[in-house]
Amino acid sequence: MLPVRCFTCGKVIANSWEDYKRRVEQGEAPAAVLDDLGVTRYCCRRMILAHVELVDVVAPYQ
């Protein structure tokens, strides 16, 4: 799961994740999606860009 807030500045970023993932999968450029979602600082952007989602892999095993 994506951390709820940015480690550096504290902005809530987890609510941007689902939109970001869906739009990037549809072929939009990650930078444009982040700008559009209002994630402007590079501290918050790296949180989303560098995130690897593992819930689906781990979830079945509890």
Partner: peptide, 15 residues
Amino acid sequence: AADSNIPVVKLKGGQ
């Protein structure tokens, strides 16, 4: 909650 769309955890079937 100030934002109602913050994911807390994803549950699989039956969890």
